[in-house]
Amino acid sequence: MTAGPDENREAGPVLTGGATPLSPSLETRRLHLRVLQSDDHAPLYRLSADPDVTFQWRFRGTTPSFDDFLKQLYPGVLCQFVVSPLGSREVFGLVVAYNADFRHRFCHAAVVMHPRLHRRGLGIEAFMGLARYIYYGWDFRMIIMETVGIAFENFASGERAGYFTVEGRIRDQFYYGGRYWDGLAVTHRREQFETVMRGPVGRLLTPGNHVLRTHEDRVI
């Protein structure tokens, strides 16, 4: 028996209650992390080529063919999910866990969101949903993110708030927009996840009461 969509949505990685208490939730307060399907490929390809995304994502401004894009979408991936608003298949972005190291118990992760959604908190919500899934399903100690300074500015205050730790910085590693930007290695450790989720931010992964709207969530 499968639990309904409103069951099993709790903040922490350990889920209780409902008909299938061992099922990790892929729903957050506003978003749904869903398995990548073939009809998502074209929207993701367009997103990868968006001028405000491409230099910060894996292709760094290059324009691979659609076939080459697809070939690079899966190798090394532990799990990846399209980010959509609850109740819709619209592609808001992609969250990916990759290069898992099972001996030393860590993996890497990346989040890419449509530029219209930058600095709106939805990337954090999507990442926390991914982190819950990862920490629930694997005994990893940490998630490592490698980022460029210009992208880091979108969530830099999270270090002070205890979301993550900047562990390494390569000065002037990347060129973009007429200047060089630092490359950063950031860790989000299991204990940071659990601490953050116990605070107000834990609300991001909990269900709530939807208000009645007059139109659908269509922003792209």
Binding site: R120, G121, I124, N154, F155, S157, Y163, R203
Partner: peptide
Amino acid sequence: DSVGAVDLMVGIEEAVGGDVIMP
């Protein structure tokens, strides 16, 4: 930034009460 936006949304939801979700 994104983290500040989360603070704002969570804060507004709590200020409204009723565990309402900001669409």
